[in-house]
Computed example of a mutant assay.
Amino acid sequence: MKKTILFTCLLALSGLSTMAQSSKFTFGIKGGVNYSNLKTKDDLTNENSILGYQAGIFARVGGAGLYFQPELYLGTKGNEYTGIQTNGSITDVKGEIKFTTLDVPLLVGTSIGTSKLNLRFMGGPIISFILDEDNSLGAAYNQVSDFGNYKNQTLGLQAGAGIDLGNLTFDARYEAGLSNISKSEKYNQQQRLFHLSLGLKIL
């Protein structure tokens, strides 16, 4: 997984270097919060959403109302569980699964307005690499042997809207997982998130 992460970072930096030669290039930093949960196939868990964060960099290149925006940021996401179904009944649990991830959205969008004030709409895939996992579910979690075995990376889709006010950029997005984050087919889990972020254009 480390080699995959390194390759992705190098590819992103190479792309940023190439795009920097474009006259319509923007680079900046961003940070924000998200509200996430893990939706399971056939509703085999009782879950609640949790609050997470994100922080990283973004680039934007394009013109004539169409742009490409790759991003690279660290974030947290996961789920709070109150019950897990096993042997046909719900096992009561109380705790969280929280992941620290390196996220790479590759977005295509369109904008309406001027360079100082414009409205944007965007969408595209996101690749997430799980760097760390923390759970507080305790003994009940350990009894469900095929539940908490997670993959190292997942694929999702982001879509949303944003607005630029001078050098400030605001985004609101929804992210839906396209791949099963769990190695168990029984507990097919897909991440769901709602993002709010604030960015600052440096270039």
Rank of each mutant, 00 (worst) to 15 (best):
M1P: 09
T4I: 14
I5L: 14
T8V: 08
L16K: 05
Q21Y: 10
S22F: 05
S22M: 10
S23W: 01
K24Q: 13
F27G: 07
S36N: 06
S36Y: 00
N37A: 09
L38F: 10
T40H: 03
D42C: 04
N46Q: 10
E47P: 00
Y53R: 05
A59W: 00
R60I: 03
V61Q: 03
G62H: 09
G62V: 11
G62Q: 13
G65V: 08
L66T: 09
Y67A: 01
F68K: 05
F68M: 12
Q69H: 02
E71D: 11
L72I: 12
T76Q: 12
E80Q: 10
G83I: 00
I84H: 01
D92N: 13
K94M: 09
E96W: 02
F99I: 00
V104I: 15
P105G: 04
P105Y: 01
G113R: 09
F121M: 15
F121G: 14
P125N: 11
I126Y: 00
S128I: 01
E133C: 04
L137I: 15
G138E: 12
A139L: 13
A140E: 11
Q143N: 11
S145K: 07
N152A: 12
Q153V: 02
T154K: 03
Q158P: 01
A161Q: 07
G166M: 10
G166F: 08
F170T: 04
G177T: 04
G177E: 05
S179V: 09
N180L: 07
N180E: 08
K183A: 05
Y187K: 09
Q189V: 05
R192F: 05
F194S: 04
H195E: 06
L198I: 15
L200F: 13
